[in-house]
Design a protein around this nucleic acid. Structure first.
Lengths: 394, 394
DNA sequence: TAGACGCCTGAATCTATAG
DNA sequence: CCTATAGATTCAGGCGTCT
């Protein structure tokens, strides 16, 4: 079981952290080396991703430069100066240059993704529309756009716009045909008052003790993302032991949360200073015990059981009459696992659909048997069969 | 005053509603005719917009086809069929065709916009990224992206994605240099618990009595937008008497709300059926009285008053000493309306900035005078001067 | 020690007008 | 176009200090 790889089985001292920069990453023509995990590579994102084996990554989180195009300085009403993102890495000559940059890194990320992998890209209105269009052009299949609503955003100081109170994430599969991507629907629902998790997430910005600062108290990275955001992403769309790639690693939130949650990570960061801060940050993380991060069991992942095997196992005898919950419809269990309604014979699903006049029906929940304590769905018999299957496997 | 044009001054019988289709709208070479208002034009959006005078529109709301790319029909868990958008107007051969369509209508809309006009475009993840990128390419300047959070979205029936619980609006000015666009910041703030309006709006979807239905109970239009959404947009970004253009008029929500709020509208709609439903809907609207829709007064729009004129009016005598709210700093009023601090002479703003060591200062709120009932800001004297100005004008 | 109070800060495309 | 100047403009939360 993959979650056995986390926690106590992977003591801190065995975490390999490369201090050699990007020496292992050459041009695309360089021989492919074995997959490296749990490293922070210092270097260019595109080059580094092209050095990875194709189809080797389970999940990508990317927080690319936003291309903010800030013209002048901004002061608060009290005349204090807003510490804006004016770093060189956020400067692009024009939209064409930003688009070319975006196409390059997205194509390289897509190449490294397994066919079942998905990608999350975060951005603001300055860049997210270009990013999304290019993703569609490259063949990514958008699954959702997600809104990170900030409960404590910076206000609009001039009163000329709406408070910019959110950022946007695009969640996409590698291809339109991908049907086997990881999405822990049930776990998210269980953790959300038993309601489906929506596309709008309310989370505070990264501040307080979580925010990395240097010895002088200045923030280490201007755009550090909150761990809660990464935790939701990683829990939703990956399994323990999966490899999470972050091509714009920055302060390393992705790596810190991946390690906490028993996932492997691979970070790429151009700035040596950020990479070093990220390594130290991640090294200080104690992974959660495996039991805390094991994927919740979900109906979808349960082994499939034929009704025939329920009959074969003696859990219900051939000849027994099943009914719907209200006893309106009746059908007889056949020895081959089909049901008979008079001359009509069909699966539990087909017969259930037939008597209701519907195109489809889940027979496991529609048909009931007399359990001794009243009517019960035959799904309960399936649960017993599954439990026996598990016992036999151990 | 422009708001005098609304309400009782414009009785229902005078609303001109064209029943002649797009006969007045020819090729761009056709002679420009007088601006038409409060009409629903049946025809192609691009052609109709190119027939409008340049720079004639104050606000654009556009709800273009979303290019949903639905592959097959979707059923709910109870097997009922979801009534999806599968109309011909939402079918495009590929992204290139959708992009070309989008460029055309956005360029035509931009041409019709006054330099001070703004545009709202609504979409979902299927199309909004392409729309936003093309808007930037055409020279629109994005002011905000706005998230319409639905408190009652359709659930995700397959449990393979997050509930798609929002749609995205892009709010943009015609040009990056536009500084004089309409934005009723104070009114929005006053209606939002005295907090600035954020970029995430929580509104229910259009249902119940608001939803247009035909005699058989089928919804008239598959994507009718809620009036509350349009009301917020129109109230935020237009003034009474302004012209609001909607190139994809559909069921006419834009027109109905514009008429209610004392704005003029111009709707363009390709389908005769929708246009007729929209006309009937709008005709049934009674505009609100002018006083209900008059723009709230804002400090920004008050006439400018020089401190010299406050002195000349005898509201404060030369030689009087002003202080800040805590009495730490002192300055003497000069006969010419400047302040003196020892040998230093400057405006109320410059001297206020100087004593605080700040680059700027609002002298009206910084400097105080002895009012008899304690210290009061000289802004109160300005208010008196303004009131006298108003009285004199009447 | 708990609460009051003030200071600081966050991915920001953040003014209007006169001359 | 430009420059100079008037003057309008912020919310939530963390943290340190004071009472």
């Amino acid at each position: 079981m993959s979650s056995a790889r986390v926690g106590a089985t992977r003591p801190k001292s065995q975490i390999k952290v490369s201090r050699t920069g990007m020496s292992n990453f050459g041009s695309p023509r360089a021989p492919k080396r074995a997959m490296s995990r749990n490293e922070v590579v210092v270097g260019d994102s595109v080059e580094a991703m092209l050095g990875l084996p194709e189809a080797s990554v389970d999940l990508v989180f990317a927080d690319p430069p936003y291309n903010l195009q800030l013209a002048s300085r901004l002061t608060r009403p009290d005349q204090s100066v807003v510490d804006a993102v004016d770093d060189d890495w956020d400067k692009f000559a024009d939209f064409a240059a930003y688009d070319a940059f975006t196409r390059d890194w997205l194509a390289a990320a897509r190449r490294a993704m397994k066919p079942s992998a998905t990608i999350f890209v975060i951005g603001s209105y300055h860049n997210i529309f270009r990013v999304g269009a290019i993703m569609q052009d490259l063949g990514f299949w958008i699954l959702n756009d997600i809104v990170w609503r900030k409960n404590n955003p910076m206000p609009n100081f001039r009163g000329r716009r709406f408070t910019n109170a959110h950022e946007t994430l695009i969640w996409a599969a590698r291809d339109a045909s991908a049907r086997n991507y990881t999405f822990h629907y049930e776990a998210l629902k269980a953790g959300n008052e038993d309601c489906q998790m929506r596309s709008d997430w309310l989370l505070p910005i990264c501040s307080g003790g979580e925010r990395l600062k240097d010895s002088a108290g200045r923030k280490t990275h201007p755009t550090q993302k909150p761990e809660a955001l990464l935790a939701r992403i990683i829990l939703a769309a990956s399994n323990p032991g999966d490899l999470v790639l972050d091509p714009f690693f920055g302060s390393g939130t992705t790596g810190a949360v991946a390690r906490l949650l028993g996932r492997d990570y691979l970070g790429i960061e151009r700035e040596q200073t950020y990479a070093e801060a990220a390594r130290a940050r991640i090294a200080a993380i104690t992974p959660l015990p495996a039991v805390a991060v094991a994927p919740a069991p979900s109906k979808r992942n349960e082994p499939r059981i034929a009704f025939a095997s329920v009959v074969e196992a003696g859990l219900v005898a051939p000849g027994v009459t099943l009914t719907d919950a209200k006893g309106h419809h009746k059908a007889v269990v056949r020895a081959d696992g089909a049901l008979a309604i008079g001359p009509i014979v069909g699966s539990i699903h087909k017969t259930g659909a037939l008597v209701q006049g519907l195109p489809a029906c889940n027979g496991w929940t529609f048909w009931h048997f007399e359990s001794g304590a009243g009517l019960a769905p035959i799904d309960e018999l399936r649960a017993v069969a599954r439990a026996r299957l598990r016992d036999a496997a151990e």
